[in-house]
Design a protein around this nucleic acid. Structure first.
Length: 396
DNA sequence: TCTGGGGTCCTTCATCCG
DNA sequence: TCTGCGGATGAAGGACCC
């Protein structure tokens, strides 16, 4: 039986949300982002006419259009708007998978059987409802699989709808460049191009074995199937649980000062641990990442004896990993701390450490979390971090 | 031109163990 | 005791996505 899958993709989501609440930004070039060493997160269409696009360094965007309005991101608000959009989809069917904050797959197969009607009419209805209730434009792609629906929504942009029927898939797919395929980025496209494979048709006419030799068993086989429009991944009604949580931040200026780096690692460890506490998760695997001034990045991973959600444990392990690098005044651009393989705290036994009282830091950290939730991020801070509010950091 | 921050998944390599 | 093998696991890094 042929499935009918819709992919709904918000157009310039962050910028659209900002224009919805600040209508005066509609007619002027604007982008969301703007930290000095950051990049453009989302640009409205007037800004795009100046060549400004997502991923571009903010500094370059300002040079292209000096009068551009810059809005700092408000992720809590974007998340709330995304929840509102999801509620619209949920009224239609329970087969809704939010793929990210601004896009969703909806399996329309059963809804169509129940309600009758035409997929295109349902797609247009969804677009109208999203615009009506959240004042954000979106594009909809409809196809027999997630893969085709996603490609169709991309072609429908901005503010449009495209349906690709089962019998149209090959004609739709084969002229596209290889990097149109989800999962083929710059590196893989480069490798394929060097093999003389430029379009999806080229991929389809290459043997599965050849692609597997070039890209590895999994990716090679997947690309071969996708090139023939074969994709049976189902729309997952349940959002997948997070496997890791982390935080990273770029210094306002590169630094070789170890005390500055240590302070930043503490801030990242604290942010990461407090997010784990908020989610009721713990983990044992700590990953430290360090990006140097020349943009090379290294990561080091360590495993703790027991699961934890405590800032001190995360920080201590991250600093142990940093010490193992034996850096000698290397100029550092960014540091990050990540905790991997999260598990619910209720599923783990918390071994009390021998060298510390039964209560103390954990209680203190929970109290800090509560104060921060109520009074904001600067309500309570570790003494070590309050001493260095010298705006060394972009977001400090 | 000068490159963020949040993630996931995959491959490769090293190590351990039976 | 030594060696080889294969599976499991962990670490590191690359690629990708939004």
């Amino acid at each position: 039986m042929v499935r009918v899958v819709a992919h709904v993709d918000m157009d310039a989501f962050y910028a659209s949300v900002e224009m919805a609440r600040h209508p005066e930004l509609r007619e002027v070039p604007m982008f969301v982002g703007g930290s000095p060493r950051g990049v453009v997160l989302s640009a409205n269409y007037p800004a795009r006419r100046f060549g400004i696009g997502a991923g571009m360094p903010s500094s370059r965007a300002r040079r292209l259009c000096p009068q551009v309005a810059v809005v700092h991101p408000d992720f809590d608000h974007y998340s709330a708007v995304s929840d509102g959009i999801r509620e619209i989809f949920d009224t239609l069917t329970d087969r809704v998978e939010m793929a990210s904050i601004d896009e969703a797959f909806i399996d329309l197969t059963t809804a169509l059987r129940r309600l009758g009607g035409d997929p295109v009419a349902i797609g247009e209805m969804l677009r109208a409802q999203v615009m009506d209730e959240q004042r954000v434009p979106c594009s909809v792609g409809i196809g027999p699989s997630k893969f085709i629906a996603k490609l169709a929504s991309k072609q429908a942009k901005p503010d449009g709808l495209l349906r690709v029927r089962e019998e149209e898939v090959i004609a739709f797919l084969h002229p596209l460049p290889v990097d149109a395929i989800w999962g083929v980025g710059e590196a893989t496209a480069g490798r394929l191009n060097r093999l003389g494979l430029d379009t999806v048709r080229d991929l389809a006419n290459t043997s599965r074995a050849t692609l597997q030799r070039a890209l590895g068993d999994n990716q090679g086989a997947l690309l071969f199937d996708l090139a023939w429009g074969r994709d049976d991944r189902s729309v997952l009604a349940r959002d997948p649980a997070e496997h890791s949580v982390g935080s990273q931040e770029t210094f306002g200026q590169d630094t070789d000062d170890e005390s500055v780096v240590a302070g930043e690692i503490l801030r990242m460890a604290d942010r990461t641990a407090s997010r784990m506490r908020a989610q009721g998760m713990v983990a044992r695997t700590v990953t430290l990442s360090v990006r140097f001034a020349d943009f090379t990045t290294i990561t080091r991973t360590g495993t703790l004896a027991a699961h934890t959600d405590r800032t001190n444990d995360v920080y201590a392990e991250a600093m142990r990993l940093f010490g193992k690098l034996h850096l000698q005044r290397a100029r550092i651009r960014r540091v990050g701390v990540r905790m991997e393989k999260l598990v619910p705290k209720v599923n783990t036994y918390q071994q009390p450490a021998l060298d510390e009282p039964a209560s103390g830091w954990s209680e203190a950290e929970r109290a800090i979390d509560k104060a921060v939730l109520r009074f904001g991020p600067h309500a309570v801070q570790r003494a070590r971090l309050t001493r260095r509010s010298d705006s060394k950091l972009i977001h400090a």
